[in-house]
Design a protein around this nucleic acid. Structure first.
Length: 492
RNA sequence: GCUCCCUUCGUCUAUCGGUUAGGACGCGAGAUUUUCAAUCUUGAAAGACGGGUUCGACUCCCGUAGGGAGCGCCA
């Protein structure tokens, strides 16, 4: 396959991720951020971050921190400082005034209650037409009477909102890299408010002004903003500014096809971190949701950067599938160097339940053991948590609590064998997996028992479980004293 | 209700008018094996429905059904 240069110089691409800090960085937002980031990397452009914090009630510093933290963990580094949209309110107001001055906006004195009543009235009218079997419905738009009324009629003491004087005829086109060309009849778009009656800018105005001022060339965001693209286009045109390129990416759905809820994965990325997923695996999974490159499934980040493009994104929503994420994560765990895994686990501990206990255990001797067993542990783990669970026997206290299956393995003959083994191994000079295996095999042959018959009780005695890394590795890592003690604990 | 978008195995997807419709996850079987994994081999599994256009349609067009998004002085 042909590979284009990773960064075609001086394309001047500027993208941005613009979350509102109402909670944490949820998984859909993470994918949007990833697409933006990849696009910037692909074309050697800039990836900016803007916090849409104009709604002061639904906005907190903690939420901002959570978003920055999530992006950092995912490895999506942004250029420059994060921009606060709220801090730019004066600039937004100035633009609203400019639009007023140029005749592209007007003051609307209709109080909110009146607007709502007007909308309700149309709705009721349409409902009654429906019951009459009529189909001549009217749009539920609110057309402000102040659009054409002279300012001299303005009521005293009523603070006006400023509305865009949107075109009434024709249509507004959105040429979108994902959605194609979507046309909105202007009669379906009302005169949106750009400045509230309390003097604060609204979202659509703020976004346009900020994107323009920040030099954003490509707006990549969720399809839920598609109609906003049309409204924003009208603002761009009113200002005579260049309209950016659009790419409205489909949303992520839950396993049942409905909107992603917390129950199925609309979690913050920090939740995925706590579940033991690797950033590279999450990136790989997320990008494959709606985007593909032939039959390639496991795609490294450099490869992703070389291949990614907006036009390859599909239009249909994808369902979130934990099983596939797990499988991918397992692959990434297996291919991550042991030392790096060890570090990642250490860094993860503050974020997981009982992480402190594990941290203490690792500090007091279990660390090197975990490290030594890593090759065996990572092969059977889907998440970092699996590695920790698989290693828990290392810091378990004697006498070990046996799970149900392990308990059944320790029957009378097994107890006797464990006693024999303890005796046979007591004087062992060499405590390596190979040496131990040779000894145990010899014992099995002597007594005419299959190796499995002796290895399973041994595993149960050493780990308290019927499932573990290879027993001889386990025994070696545990050390002679501890291993023998554990065996004797269960011996007859 | 109105506007817009979507529809290939259970899931993510490939196919850009001619293929035995491919891959991956998951699931089944087998090999390997001290358990569990990992690995390898292998099986089942899809073009929502109905009309067109065409020599030929998963692919293009229309309709139906189903799903989703948007319709705020929220973002």
């Amino acid at each position: 396959m042909s590979q284009k240069p990773a960064a075609e110089k001086s394309t001047g691409v500027v993208v941005r991720f613009a979350p509102s800090p109402t909670g944490y960085l949820h998984i859909g937002g993470a994918r949007t951020a990833l697409f933006n980031w990849l696009y910037a990397q692909r074309y050697g452009g800039r990836f900016l971050l803007r916090i849409e914090d104009t709604d002061r009630e639904r906005n907190s510093p903690e939420a901002v921190a959570a978003i920055l933290d999530g992006l950092t963990w995912l490895g999506l580094d942004w250029d420059g400082e994060a921009v606060s949209q709220f801090a730019r309110a004066d600039r937004h107001r100035a633009i609203a005034e400019a639009m007023l001055a140029s005749g592209h906006a007007y003051r609307c004195y209709s109080p909110p209650a009146e607007i709502e009543a007007a909308r309700d009235a149309v709705k009721a009218e349409n409902a009654s037409r429906k019951t009459q079997g009529r189909t001549d419905f009217q749009p539920e738009l609110f057309l402000s009477p102040w659009r054409d009324r002279p300012a001299s009629e303005a009521p005293a003491g009523v603070p006006p909102a400023i509305r865009l004087k949107a075109p009434r005829d024709g249509s507004t086109r959105v040429d979108d890299h994902v959605q194609g060309t979507v046309t909105f009849p202007n009669k379906d778009l009302d005169d949106l408010i750009i400045l509230r009656s309390d003097g604060n800018p609204t979202y659509n105005l703020a976004v346009v002004v900020d994107d323009h001022d920040m030099g954003v060339t490509h707006v990549v965001r969720g399809v839920d903003h598609l109609t906003n693209a049309a409204r924003q286009t009208q603002i761009y045109e009113a200002m005579g500014w260049a309209v950016p390129e659009w790419a409205h990416v489909p949303l992520i759905h839950g396993p049942d096809g409905a909107k992603l809820s917390k129950r199925h994965g609309a979690l913050g990325v920090e939740a995925y971190r706590a579940m033991g997923y690797l950033p590279a695996a999450l990136r790989n999974y997320l990008v494959r949701l709606g985007w593909s490159h032939g039959d390639d499934e496991i795609i490294s980040t450099p490869q992703l950067i070389a291949w990614f493009d907006l036009d390859g994104i599909g239009k249909s929503a994808a369902r979130f599938d934990f099983a596939k994420l797990e499988s991918l994560n397992g692959h990434y765990i297996r291919t991550t160097p042991d030392d790096e895994l060890f570090d990642r686990i250490t860094q993860l501990l503050p974020y997981i339940p009982r992480g402190n206990e594990v941290a203490n255990a690792l500090a007091s001797g279990a660390g090197p053991k975990l490290r030594a067993l890593m090759p065996a542990l990572k092969e059977r783990a889907k998440t970092l948590i699996d590695i920790l669970d698989g290693a828990a026997f290392l810091w378990a206290e004697r006498p070990l609590a046996l799970d149900e299956k392990a308990g059944k393995l320790i029957d009378a003959p097994a107890r006797a064998a464990l006693g024999d083994l303890a005796a046979a191994l007591a004087g062992a000079q060499e405590w390596t997996p190979a040496a131990l295996e040779a000894k145990v095999r010899a014992y099995a042959e002597e007594t005419g028992v299959k190796l499995g018959k002796i290895a399973q009780p041994l595993r149960a005695a050493l780990t308290g479980s019927s499932v573990s890394p290879p027993v001889f590795d386990v025994m070696a890592v545990l050390g002679q004293a501890e291993a023998l003690a554990r065996i004797k604990d269960q011996a007859g």
